[in-house]
Write a protein that binds this DNA or RNA. Structure first.
Lengths: 208, 208
DNA sequence: GTGTTTCGAAACTCAAGCGTATCGAATACG
DNA sequence: CGTATTCGATACGCTTGAGTTTCGAAACAC
C-alpha cells in the first residue's frame, strides 16, 4: 500500500463527511476474501468473520463498520456474482440451448457459483432472506429464460408438441449439474463441445 | 421404559462380560436421533453431539462409550441407510430404467437419503473417510448397476448404438434429482407415474 | 497545525459445543 | 448379599468464533 486509494463518489448533495474516508480497496478485499472462502468451505457456518478478515488482510473492525453481521456481508458478497445471462442468437432453438448449456457448465465448474447453488438449496430454512435474495437475483431469471426458450421451441415445431417443460428443464439443468459433479469437475469445462454433445443427446433421446 | 431391554448376543466364545449390559434401545435411539438431525440440518458441523443426546433422551456418556467421536457415529448411522437395489425384471430396458428411476425418486424425496448425497458431494475434503465409505457402500453400486443397464440396452438395440453412457447416466440421475429439488420435493413422490414419464421423456428426446 | 474519521491490531466478553470426569441409581452376574 | 458395568445427569476445562472495545497511527478537511 504505497499509494492512497481512499476516495468517495462525492456527489454534490453528499458533502463528503469529515475524517478519513473508508478504503475502497479494503472493501473489495473483504468481498473477494469472502467469496474465496465460500468457494472453499461449503457450509456457511464454517465461514468465520475472523478468517475473512485474515484472508483480506483487514481488521475485524473494518468489516463490522460496514456490515452489522455475517449474513449481511454474505448477501452483498454473493450478489456481486450474478453473471448476466448471455444474449441469444435466436436462430435455432438447438443453438440457443447450447448457449445456455455452456453457461450452466461454466457456472457449475466454478467453485464460487457452485456454492451459491449449494447455499440456495441447502440453507433455505436457516438463512431465508439470503436464499430468497439469491433466488430472485440469479435462479429465477435463468429458470424463466430457459422455460421461455423451451416454449419457443415447441411453438416453432423444433421441439415436441407434447413437451413437458418442467421435466425438460430438469433434463437440461440436472444433466449438466450431475455430469460436472460425477465426471471430474475441472476437466469437463475444458472439452468445449461438451455442451453441444449434451444438448444433442437430449434432443435425440436415448432410444434407438 | 417399563420392561428391560438389555441383552447381548452372548455367543459361546464371548462369555458375557460382568456388569450391566449396554442398552440396545439407547443405541437405536442414538442412531435414529442422529439420522433425524442429519436430515434436518444439512451441514455436518451444525450437527452437535449434545443435540443428538438430547433428542435421543440419552446422556453424552452413553454416546461416547460407543463411538469415540462424531465422525465414527456418523459412519455407523449413515451405513444403516443403504437401501438395497431392487432386483430387475429384466424384460425390457425401459421397464428396468423405470424401476431405477423410482428408487432414485424415492431416495431423493427422503430427507435422510438426500443428506447422504449432500454429504458425499460437499464434504469430500473435510471428511474423506466418511465420504469414501458412503461412496463404496451406496453410490458406486448404483452407478455400476445403472451403467450396466444402459450398456445392456445398447447391446440389445433398445438404446442408440452411439450412446454416451456417462451423459446418459447424468441424464437419468440428474433429471430426477433436479426435478425433485425444483418442483416440490414431497408432492413429486406422490404422482406414481412420474418415474415413467421421466424415462419415456428421456428415451424419446426433446426433439420433434 | 487541529479535529474527525478510518485504519489494522489486539484485547475483551459471551455463547456453543467437544470430550472428560464424577455422581447416585439401575441392572446384570454369582 | 457383593461386585461390575452402564445408565442419565451434571459439571468441568478447553477451543472456536461472534461481536465489542481500545489503542496508536494514518488520512482527510479546514
Amino acid at each position: 500500500m504505497t499509494t492512497t486509494d481512499e476516495f468517495q463518489a462525492a456527489g454534490a448533495q453528499t458533502p463528503r463527511p469529515a475524517g478519513r474516508p473508508r478504503s475502497a480497496r479494503a472493501e473489495k478485499a473483504i468481498i473477494d476474501a469472502t467469496l474465496d472462502l465460500v468457494g472453499e468451505s461449503i457450509g456457511l457456518s464454517e465461514l468465520s468473520i475472523e478468517a475473512i478478515a485474515a484472508r483480506a488482510g483487514v481488521g475485524k473492525t473494518t468489516i463490522y463498520r460496514r456490515w452489522s453481521n455475517k449474513e449481511d456481508l454474505l448477501v452483498d458478497a454473493l450478489s456481486t456474482l450474478k453473471t448476466p445471462l448471455p444474449p441469444l442468437a435466436g436462430v435455432s432453438v438447438r443453438d440457443d440451448l447450447i448457449v445456455y448449456a455452456r453457461v450452466l457448465l461454466r457456472d457449475a465448474c466454478d467453485a464460487r457459483n457452485r456454492c451459491v447453488m449449494n447455499i440456495a438449496m441447502n440453507e433455505a430454512e436457516r438463512h431465508p432472506r439470503l436464499v430468497e435474495r439469491i433466488h430472485r437475483a440469479t435462479i429465477e431469471p435463468r429458470r424463466a429464460a430457459i422455460a421461455a426458450l423451451l416454449r419457443r421451441g415447441v411453438a416453432t415445431g423444433e421441439l415436441r408438441a407434447d413437451l413437458d417443460v418442467p421435466i425438460a428443464m430438469a433434463n437440461l439443468v440436472g444433466t449438466v449439474m450431475w455430469y460436472v459433479r460425477t465426471e471430474g469437475g475441472g476437466e469437463a469445462a475444458g472439452s468445449s463441445d461438451l455442451a453441444e454433445r449434451i444438448v444433442d443427446h437430449l434432443l435425440a433421446g436415448l432410444g434407438a
